[in-house]
């Protein structure tokens, strides 16, 4: 701001000399001619001879021709170079002293801000990545856990099925054995009952036969035999 103000002032201040060097071809010719007249006549009164003389003077013609020469497109007037160089130097000094540090500070501040923003973004990205990795880890844990639970449930179900199957088979085998044992027992009981029945009938018949055949003589003989038996038992 300050630099621009200073440069404007310098342009206004040195405007006069700058414009003097930039005169037109006509004014240059007029000026040179008038100047040559003064040198020739030495008095204020100018005559047509004078004009004629001057106009044919070769020196004057060279000066006038000089007016017709175009200014150098590359090399400016010396004054312009001096003024321009001075202004440039002043402006350069001001810029070096004031402008560059300010611009540099602003640039630095901006760079710093951008860097801070980048850092923040990087941090945010890192945080986000951390959170993502956390989530991914949790997800993986959850997947592992769910897989474990499913596996556990499957194993339990298998075990249960096996157990139930074994129990059922054992029960069936037990029932079968029991049924077979019951059948055997009933068969044995029936046989025993039948045998007892038959033997009871046979013995009843035998008893009746014995009773009817045991008359007094037979009884007496039995008693005698018994007495003999007692005698011989331990004798």
């Amino acid at each position: 701001m300050v630099a621009s103000l200073v440069s404007l002032m310098s342009i206004v201040a040195f405007a006069g000399p700058a414009s003097a060097s930039g005169e037109s071809v006509g004014s240059c010719v007029a000026e040179k001619f008038e100047e040559s007249l003064h040198h020739h006549g030495e008095s204020d009164h100018v005559t047509s001879d004078d004009i004629h003389h001057v106009a044919h003077d070769e020196a004057v013609q060279d000066e006038l021709e000089a007016c017709l020469e175009a200014p150098s497109p590359i090399l400016p007037e010396l004054t312009e170079i001096i003024w321009g160089g001075a202004a440039f130097l002043i402006l350069l000094v001001i810029m070096v002293k004031k402008g560059f540090p300010a611009v540099k500070g602003a640039m630095d501040a901006r760079s710093e801000k951008i860097r801070a923003d980048l850092d923040a973004a990087e941090q945010a990205k890192t945080d986000a990545q951390t959170v993502q990795s956390d989530y991914e880890a949790q997800l993986a844990d959850a997947k592992t856990e769910s897989a474990r639970i499913i596996e556990e449930a499957r194993v339990t179900a298998d075990q249960l099925r096996t157990d139930l199957s074994a129990q059922a088979e054992a029960s069936i085998a037990e029932m079968r054995e029991k049924a077979a044992a019951d059948v055997e027992a009933q068969k044995a009981q029936a046989i025993a009952d039948l045998r007892a029945e038959v033997s009871g009938i046979a013995l009843g018949a035998a008893e009746r036969v014995v009773q009817s055949s045991l008359d007094a003589d037979a009884q007496a003989r039995l008693i005698d035999a018994y007495i003999d038996e007692v005698t011989g038992s331990n004798g």
Partner: peptide, 12 residues
């Protein structure tokens, strides 16, 4: 018979 049985028991 009683007599013989008595003797038999005594013997036995």
């Amino acid at each position: 018979q009683r007599q013989r049985l008595t003797e038999a028991i005594k013997t036995s």
